[in-house]
Lab assay of single mutants.
Amino acid sequence: TEEYEYTDEQQAREAAREWREKGYTVTIEEHNGRWRVKTG
């Protein structure tokens, strides 16, 4: 599992979409105004 943090929701969603296209399972969670994208 890798985790990436973004301050911008749009960036987080874009990144998540790219990971999904590569076949990863992706979770996005908002935490204190930051967006965490977890792949695994």
Rank of each mutant, 00 (worst) to 15 (best):
T1W: 15
T1N: 12
T1K: 10
T1F: 14
T1A: 12
T1S: 12
T1Y: 14
T1R: 10
E2I: 14
E3A: 10
E3G: 08
E3P: 07
E3V: 15
Y4A: 06
Y4H: 08
Y4K: 07
Y4P: 04
Y4Q: 07
Y4I: 08
Y4T: 07
E5Q: 06
E5F: 14
E5R: 05
E5Y: 15
E5H: 08
E5M: 10
E5V: 11
E5I: 13
E5A: 06
Y6H: 03
Y6R: 00
Y6Q: 01
Y6F: 14
Y6I: 02
Y6E: 01
T7Q: 12
T7N: 12
T7P: 13
T7K: 08
T7L: 13
T7F: 12
D8H: 06
D8P: 00
E9Y: 13
E9S: 04
Q10G: 10
Q10N: 12
Q10S: 12
Q10M: 12
Q11G: 07
Q11S: 14
Q11N: 07
Q11I: 08
A12T: 02
A12V: 03
A12L: 02
A12N: 00
R13E: 10
R13Y: 11
E14M: 08
E14R: 09
E14Y: 06
E14P: 00
E14V: 08
E14S: 08
A15V: 09
A15I: 07
A15T: 05
A15S: 07
A15R: 06
A15H: 07
A16Q: 03
A16H: 03
A16I: 04
A16P: 00
R17E: 11
R17V: 07
R17K: 12
R17Y: 07
E18P: 04
E18G: 09
E18F: 15
W19E: 02
W19M: 08
W19T: 01
W19Q: 04
W19A: 05
W19L: 14
W19C: 03
R20N: 06
R20G: 06
R20T: 11
R20F: 10
R20E: 14
R20V: 12
R20D: 04
R20I: 13
E21G: 06
E21H: 07
E21W: 05
K22C: 03
K22S: 05
K22R: 11
K22V: 03
G23Q: 02
G23L: 02
G23I: 01
G23N: 03
G23E: 02
G23K: 03
G23W: 02
Y24W: 07
Y24L: 07
Y24N: 03
Y24I: 06
Y24K: 04
T25W: 14
T25Y: 13
V26S: 03
V26D: 00
V26E: 00
V26R: 00
V26M: 02
T27P: 00
T27C: 05
T27S: 10
T27K: 07
T27N: 06
T27W: 13
I28D: 00
I28E: 02
I28Y: 03
I28V: 12
I28L: 09
E29G: 04
E29D: 07
E29H: 09
E29F: 13
E29N: 06
E30H: 12
E30Y: 15
E30C: 06
E30D: 05
E30N: 09
E30V: 10
E30S: 08
H31V: 14
H31F: 12
H31G: 05
H31A: 09
H31S: 10
N32I: 03
N32K: 08
N32F: 07
G33A: 03
G33E: 03
G33N: 05
G33R: 03
G33W: 02
R34W: 07
R34P: 01
R34K: 13
R34N: 08
W35L: 01
W35V: 01
W35H: 01
W35Q: 00
W35Y: 07
R36N: 08
R36G: 04
V37G: 01
V37P: 01
V37R: 00
K38W: 09
K38Y: 11
K38H: 10
T39D: 03
T39H: 10
T39M: 14
G40Y: 15
G40F: 15
G40N: 14
G40E: 14
G40C: 06
